[in-house]
């Protein structure tokens, strides 16, 4: 039996009929066509599916769509401001934090949450925050540098 789910995604309210066992990741990728959020494992091991659920970094592959009923979801597609990269995205681009880019959407969402709750995270804070987001390309060095730079850039 499908259930009705109302969820605000990147500021837009959607009402969908969805099977109770389907995940938030499936809702985003398949029902809303928001394919920026990735599925690297589907079982909570990699972090590529990270979104913000009411502001909290959450693995969307482990979250049922119905759990998001009445919630607000932010995905990578919602980060840009006025059609321009926000300062975190820009820092990722400028610092070479993106190679294959498959981890980037989840990494950006986790970092977004970190920067909202902490003004001036040090390197260890950043590493701890993103330790649930695997990246196989960068060795994390440039990702850490990008997040640090974005936290310092208050312009």
């Amino acid at each position: 039996m499908k259930k009705i789910v109302s969820v605000t995604v990147n500021g837009v309210l959607h009402e969908l009929a969805i099977e109770p066992r389907r995940t938030l990741l499936e809702l985003l990728r398949e029902d809303l066509g928001l394919t920026g959020t990735k599925k690297g494992c589907g079982i909570g091991d990699c972090g590529t599916c990270t979104v913000l659920l009411d502001g909290v970094a959450t693995f969307s592959c482990l979250t049922l769509a119905i759990q998001a009923d009445g919630c607000s979801v932010e995905t990578v597609e919602g980060l840009a401001e006025d059609g321009k990269l926000n300062r975190l995205q820009q820092a990722f681009v400028d610092h070479g934090a993106i190679q294959c880019g498959f981890c980037s959407p989840g990494m950006l969402m986790t970092a977004t949450e970190l920067l909202r709750r902490s003004d001036n995270p040090n390197e260890q804070d950043i590493r701890r925050a993103i330790s649930g987001n695997l990246c196989r390309c960068t060795g994390y060095q440039k990702i850490v540098e990008a997040i640090k730079a974005a936290s310092e850039d208050t312009s």
Partner: peptide, 9 residues
């Protein structure tokens, strides 16, 4: 390709 990857495009 970095901007496209940073926006989910």
């Amino acid at each position: 390709d970095a901007a496209d990857k940073a926006t989910g495009k």
